[in-house]
Design a protein around this nucleic acid. Structure first.
Length: 495
RNA sequence: GGCCCCAUCGUCUAGUGGCCUAGGACAUCGGCCUCUCACGCCGGUAACAGGGGUUCGAGUCCCCUUGGGGUCACCA
């Protein structure tokens, strides 16, 4: 195979959403798999809607996901001269013509056609047959003109072989003469995109099925420009539960890549989830490292069916697709502790809970603690919320465990400080010795150990649930445990 | 409406004519484990859109119907 060159060409008119991220991911995977190159090209020819904030957001999002590119970012507007030159070539070779119809006239015609449910809603070809004289006359009058591509009126069909869909055919007569240059002289997407792909020597165009009608027209452009066709691969779209195309406008934050970073997702977990949306390896395998996925990926296993992003607005537990949450949890529990340590470090830093010693003298303690508590967490955020008591003495006591495990048992205000005293005199302070001391006290008081254990869990961590109690005690250390247990009475004084 | 694409559990999907009594994952339900809650493990519920063909045999091939999606801009 010749050199593989693919591209991700977002238009900077909004934030990077998961559909776009998936397209970028598939291109990245394909490039890596074939030792090819991924080109990032910002298609900013829509001056009115393109923004710098969007460009920054897209780049940040890709970087966060770990999708790196080999060339670019190129900016489409920097190549305006290429696009204009191509349009002029098309004009000169008779593949395009000037059209003097106004936008308003065309809209009126189109609306009328739509209203009457006529099939021919496309351009009617008014200016297609203007002779040189007529064109000169119109120009002399100063009437602005767009440039339209002259679609061959030969009978039959045009086709291309899609890597995922197979042969796609369309009859020439169904394709209207489309505009390639605005009346203000600025070339349009259909043309720019092809000119850039030719210049960038793109070998494979991997994009959404929403581009399929563009592709048939662009095939015409490649032909007219005398360029070799790239291989096309149209990916299925991602829809919502109502089967509608997802967009930030109608779905809000959940479809923005940024959201997942803010919610504490592991970047690769999102990638892993996204790749499973519309692609599968043909085996039962669902978790892949980067290397494994690059190795396994292939265009031919991309699904032809649109997939649904299973998100139910208003569901607190499943604030995004449950499978994505499950995949994130899986990585949270199984990933290399040191790597997890880096991710959690950022969360701790953001909360001013990071102690530089965690990277040096207390590194063992830090990683062991993460390993102890990671099992019941869902996202990276949990380390600084539910897990806050492990890193700070300023932590909230949840109302539910407070009521259930502490307030119901007023004697704990005395018992827990008593336990603290027993802990002070322990020769060895570890999970075993603290458990023995605790059960010993329970015996002496003639209460079930659970009363003491659940009470101390609440006092020590503020949480209803958590790891095995005496592992927590050992992790927190004698000083913190004793201090916290001694203050138990304070909880009863609260308003 | 025209054209194009698509159609297996709630969701993501396996399935390329016999290995399908339709498999896996998530979700859900039940059980085990247990100081809590998880994790983990075990088990259950749950799908071939409908109708015609072709064939000894169809989830798999063909046709029709239905349904869904995309697109029809001087946006990208």
């Amino acid at each position: 195979m010749e050199e593989v060159r693919v591209r991700f060409p977002p238009s900077p008119t909004g934030y990077l959403h998961i559909g776009g991220a998936r397209t970028a991911l598939f291109n990245w995977l394909f490039a890596k798999k074939h030792n090819g190159r991924l080109i990032l090209r910002i298609e900013d020819t829509d001056e009115e809607r393109s923004t710098q904030a969007s460009i920054d957001g897209i780049i940040d999002g890709l970087q966060w996901l770990g999708i790196d590119w080999d060339e670019g970012p190129y900016f489409q507007t920097d190549f305006a001269a290429d696009h204009v030159a191509a349009a002029n070539r098309l004009l000169a070779s008779g593949h395009a013509y000037k059209c003097f119809c106004t936008k308003e006239e065309l809209e009126k015609k189109r609306e009328a056609a739509m209203a009457e449910k006529r099939s021919e809603v496309g351009y009617d070809g008014t200016c297609r047959h203007l002779n040189a004289e007529q064109v000169r006359a119109k120009e002399a009058q100063g009437i602005p003109a767009t440039i339209r591509f002259k679609v061959s009126n030969r009978p039959g069909t045009l086709f291309y072989d899609d890597e995922v869909l197979g042969r796609i055919e369309r009859t020439y007569s169904e394709i209207e003469d489309f505009v390639i240059v605005r009346s203000n002289g600025k070339p349009l997407y259909l043309l720019c995109n092809v000119v850039d792909d030719i210049r960038d020597r793109i070998s494979h165009v991997i994009r959404g099925q929403d581009h399929m009608t563009n592709t048939t027209r662009q095939v015409l452009l490649y032909e007219a420009l005398g360029a070799k066709l790239p291989v096309f691969a149209h990916m299925p779209l991602t829809l919502d539960l109502q089967k509608r195309k997802i967009s930030k406008r109608s779905h809000g934050e959940v479809v923005a890549v940024q959201f997942y970073r803010d919610m504490g997702f592991i970047p690769w977990a999102l990638c892993n989830f996204l790749c499973l949306l519309g692609w599968n390896p043909g085996t039962d395998r669902e978790f892949f490292s980067r290397e494994e996925l690059v190795e396994t990926f292939s265009l031919s296993r991309i699904s032809r069916v649109n997939s649904v992003f299973n998100f139910k607005p208003g569901d607190a537990k499943f604030f995004t697709d449950p499978k994505l949450i499950a995949i994130n949890e899986h990585y949270l529990r199984t990933m290399d502790p040191a790597e997890l340590g880096q991710l959690v470090r950022r969360e701790l830093e953001a909360e001013n809970l990071w102690d530089p010693a965690y990277a040096t003298s207390r590194s063992d303690w830090y990683l062991a603690t993460l390993d102890l508590i990671r099992d019941r967490f869902h996202t990276l955020k949990d380390f600084v919320t539910a897990g806050r008591a492990y890193f700070s003495d300023q932590y909230a006591i949840d109302a539910k465990p407070l009521a259930k495990n502490v307030l119901k048992q007023p004697e704990l205000a005395v018992w827990l400080p008593q336990l603290a005293e027993r802990y002070t005199v322990l020769a060895e302070f570890n999970a075993l010795s603290t458990e023995q001391a605790c059960r010993g006290l329970a015996d002496a008081l003639a209460v079930k150990p659970g009363v003491l254990i659940n009470g101390m869990r609440t006092v020590l961590t503020g949480q209803l649930a958590g790891p095995s109690m005496f592992d927590i005690v050992a992790t927190l250390g004698r000083e913190r445990v004793v201090a916290r247990l001694r203050r138990t009475a304070d909880l009863f004084a609260a308003p």
